[in-house]
């Protein structure tokens, strides 16, 4: 599903360049989440950064914001006063004990009132043991060092650390926010696009800015022109128009058409997971559904999705879903 697009990008002649190239460097350029970013801006102004947890789904600017904040706070001293550890770095308890502590003890000349910053990206993948070790370290070195933890789920961070951090939440990006940014990128890169094409990019990314730009780049370098068809071909996602048609026929109660749509997607070679993910995504934005029907849809799709995840990746599950969705709502 999602990973296909990134592989497409990495085989490109311009590997990753756009994602990094268009990563904002100042806080005011960060897209979306105005309140949270504003708050970070305030911190940048006051200079005194508390320990923070940035929580939110992938690709909505957590890391970007914290990097911007670090730049704003530390300026030229950024290189030596920031330690960034990713999930790909080994982050067992020993790293916390050694690398982090050594860094915290390091002497760096900083303007008064500023602190060294340790950025732990994807902190929710740290083991609880490592988090425990972090707990007291945070406190002891708070005079010189502050921590920024970025994670997808804040509840994967143990309570004592949550208690020591200000939690800043990032909501998902709205489609128009993503679109605006995409247009900027297209203008800067001179990419040919149709408005529908960009909308398709935004849809395929589902609020994930990083993926949106990746998909845009893949489409642009693959086809030169960004149109919906090209986008979905590159991203290898079921075409949402087909799914919309399926849902519409479900609402109308015509089982045959709905099943035909599903079978059509299936014969195109999409996997069950791809199809069900797309269906869910479309339902979320599908216009004229009344409340109880939407509830019923989500419930059925969820059940089917879990079955598929459990290993039943078969056509009959999807067809069964289509059939159940055609049933009139009970109450």
């Amino acid at each position: 599903m999602a990973s296909t697009s990134s592989t497409a990008a990495s085989t490109n002649t311009l590997p990753w360049c756009r994602v990094e190239k268009y990563r904002p460097t100042v806080l005011t350029d960060v897209v979306g989440n105005q309140e949270t970013v504003e708050r970070l801006n305030v911190i940048a102004g006051s200079g005194n950064m508390p320990n923070v947890i940035l929580a939110g789904s992938p690709g909505i600017g957590k890391t970007t914001s914290i990097l911007c904040l670090a730049h704003a706070l530390l300026g030229p001293a950024y290189k030596e006063a920031v330690l960034e550890l990713n999930a790909s770095d080994d982050r067992g308890i020993d790293v916390v004990r050694n690398r982090i502590k050594t860094f915290a003890q390091k002497k760096v000349n900083l303007p008064p009132g500023r602190h060294k910053i340790i950025i732990l990206d994807e902190a929710d993948s740290m083991t609880p043991g490592a988090q425990q070790a972090l707990r007291r370290t945070m406190e002891i070195y708070s005079g010189t060092t502050r921590f920024a933890l970025a994670c997808n789920l804040s509840s994967k961070i143990i309570e004592p650390i949550q208690s020591r951090c200000a939690i800043l939440r990032f909501g998902t990006l709205q489609n128009d926010q993503v679109l605006r940014r995409l247009v900027e990128v297209c203008r800067a890169e001179g990419v040919q696009y149709t408005p529908e094409g960009l909308e398709a990019v935004a849809f395929s990314a589902d609020g994930d800015m990083r993926q949106a730009i990746n998909n845009l780049q893949s489409t642009a370098s693959g086809f030169g022109l960004v149109t919906p068809d090209n986008v979905f071909r590159v991203c290898d996602q079921p075409h949402p128009v087909v799914i919309q048609k399926m849902l519409a026929s479900c609402c109308a109660g015509s089982v045959d058409e709905a099943v035909a749509c599903i079978s059509h997607l299936w014969t195109q070679g999409y996997s069950a997971v791809d199809i069900i993910t797309s269906i869910f995504r479309v339902v979320k934005t599908f216009g004229d559904l009344d409340e109880d029907r939407r509830l019923q849809f989500i419930r059925e799709i969820g059940t089917t999705h879990m079955r598929i995840v459990d290993g039943l990746q078969t056509l009959v599950q999807l067809q069964g879903l289509a059939a159940r969705l055609c049933k009139p709502v009970a109450c």
């Binding site: 993910t277 869910f280 409340e291 939407r294 509830l295 989500i298 419930r299 799709i301 969820g302 999705h305 879990m306 995840v309 459990d310």
Partner: peptide, 17 residues
């Protein structure tokens, strides 16, 4: 489906809606 990512979203949506 804990850990499957979407499960929590489904669960919350179904419960709240």
């Amino acid at each position: 489906g804990r850990g499957a990512g979407a499960a929590d979203v489904y669960a919350a949506m179904v419960a709240v809606r």
